[in-house]
Design a protein around this nucleic acid. Structure first.
Lengths: 338, 338
DNA sequence: TTTAGCACTCTCCGCTTTTGATTGCTAAAC
DNA sequence: GTTTAGCAATCAAAAGCGGAGAGTGCTAAA
């Protein structure tokens, strides 16, 4: 076995062992566990080299090796796209795609729960969001005397609602007529189209149009749909976070609004799974973690994000293959809604 | 000062001190901090009595006192309804009620966030749910060839949607007619009304009605609307949970589905704030916590729950008054939607 | 280049001691 | 009868110690 080759094997062994055991591994253990045909002293030379090159560190002078961020990055590039989810799990995922998708949100949660169970870490899924939302349908329902509920359906099956109050009492009949008229006039338009369309409008029509534009503009401004987290218990149950005050910082960020944007804004991964390891994350509180995420959806139409958040020490192979699998599942499902 | 009276003061001091400091209090500290006109030895006699009666315990023989569940229960009954939220905070709450309530869900989150900041603990709010849901309005939007989006508006402004697939291509015009017809036929009905109403229906009408009934029946079966948690970081940041494996059990329960029902099923509090302290909770994993919750909404129409979850050592006075304040705020807001 | 051998380093565990906080008890004072 | 002062007793937490064990670094030989 060539020297260069063995060093790579050693690094791989260190990483994979740390992923399962979460503890430093000794040179002798590397030899034994993985049946290498050299002595522990040789491995020590290799780990010394790996340490000089920044792939491993040791908690103290006489301790085993643990991988660095650089090692994980190397490992992720190495395993790359080669991996596929085992049959059993592919079958599980297939099953769930068959399930009745009554409510999109409800279904997304089921999907998130399954993925979380599979990868034993925190999962985030955002609802799919249209790139540029277009108006499809509008509906008005009378509430109390002066009030009505405005329901707006956008392409990609997004539904928004808002309460309007009018200056006068408006009957349900009137409201239905208003709704039908505006639906046929605005059908297929973007918010700027609607804004541009200056027709003579009644006072109520104007008011409704304004709300409509506002709703659509707000929607356009968002980078992502509503994020949904599942499996916090799995993340916090990881040995690196029990008895650690860092979990508070992590929770703080995760409960905030902007962390998803901040992380994924730089560039969208072209097709594959984006991997952010430790220090690569701009958010300091999350630098003990790795985030893996994949976009799903229909290109140029609507897209969402499905991701996994866990300790840097995570089963990248499994998570990447799971994410690939789930993102196609979700894409197929979104395609139906459009 | 009568003896009985002083003992009550001592107990109150112990509780209030523990609420702020989270550590056992010594007899001498009780005297000093609260300027009592007796010696520490006297207080020791009192705490010995309180311990015999089960109001306080001590971590070990020579440690200060900490309150028991019984003490908290006593304390809650004592302060009862006497308390009002300070002016500044009432003003804050008032402010938020003015804010634009575009999306109910969005607004509920804002409310939850404010409440969480105020009480520095985990807040749970469920969306308001109709006691028995009645059909108000229905809408059909064409998606792909054989598919359509069914949008159902129920009284109390609940909106549900579902994707339907038909055996044949149905145009938007047809769908609109179908929607108008069914809306006028079923207006104001409950799911059983609709089920009972056997008219001659076309195949599509029958299919839609079935979906409709299914949606409404599912809705009726639920005890609560969608629960929304805010402020997990505040709960887990409490000193009793740092470095404690119990948080995992708590998270597990909180990420589950049924814990809210299990806790509040017994009896609904008549108007006020329901307080569940420690062991009073049927769920073992939550017995280190206290839950306080209040129903909001319009009686016999729609209601939701707003609650606070924190360590047993929590500022009951503040939380109870906050909950009272917020539940009227939410009730007023729901009243508008009905 | 690899290996055996050995000294060295450092953590972890358990043990003991010390320190300091706090109470329980008793006898005297109010 | 209640309250108090005083003091011994109790206990947790911190600090110190020492040895076992795990593991490496280095050197010299294979």
């Amino acid at each position: 076995m060539a020297l260069r080759e063995r060093r790579e094997t050693v690094l791989r062994v260190i990483i994979e062992d740390y992923i399962t055991r979460a503890a430093p591994i000794a040179s002798s253990a590397i030899v034994e566990k993985y049946g290498l045909k050299v002595s522990s002293a040789t491995i020590r030379n290799d780990t010394a080299y790996l340490e000089r090159e920044g792939y491993v560190v040791r908690p103290h002078r006489s301790a085993g090796s643990i991988p660095t961020d650089k090692a994980y990055r190397y490992y992720v590039e190495l395993i790359g796209a080669e991996i596929e989810l085992p049959r059993v799990e592919q079958y599980l995922v297939h099953q769930i795609s068959q399930e009745a998708k009554e409510e999109l949100e409800q279904w997304l949660r089921t999907v998130a729960a399954l993925l979380a169970r599979l990868v034993r870490n925190l999962v985030v899924i955002t609802t799919p969001k249209a790139v540029r939302c277009r108006f499809k349908h509008l509906d008005l329902v009378a509430l109390q005397d002066f009030m009505a509920l405005l329901i707006v359906v956008l392409y990609e099956a997004e539904v928004r609602r808002q309460v309007l109050s009018f200056d006068r009492k408006v009957s349900q009949d009137e409201l239905t007529k208003l709704a039908n008229k505006l639906t046929s006039v605005y059908g297929g338009m973007t918010s700027s189209d609607i804004l541009a369309k200056r027709e003579k409008l009644s006072s109520e029509e104007r008011q409704i149009s304004e709300s409509l534009v506002e709703i659509m503009a707000t929607q356009d401004k968002l980078d992502y749909g509503e994020p949904y987290l599942e499996g916090l218990r799995l993340l916090l149950g990881q040995p690196e976070f029990t008895n650690s005050p860092r979990i508070l910082g992590i929770l703080e960020v995760l409960e905030g609004e902007d962390w998803l944007r901040n992380i994924f804004s730089q560039e969208s991964s072209r097709g594959g799974v984006k991997v952010v390891i430790g220090d690569e994350n701009p958010e300091p509180a999350l630098q003990d973690l790795s985030l893996l995420a994949s976009q799903y959806g229909v290109p140029d139409k609507a897209s969402g994000i499905v991701g996994v958040i866990g300790p840097k020490r995570m089963d990248y192979a499994k998570v990447i293959s799971s994410l690939n699998c789930f993102s196609t599942l979700l894409s197929d499902s979104v395609a139906e809604y459009i």
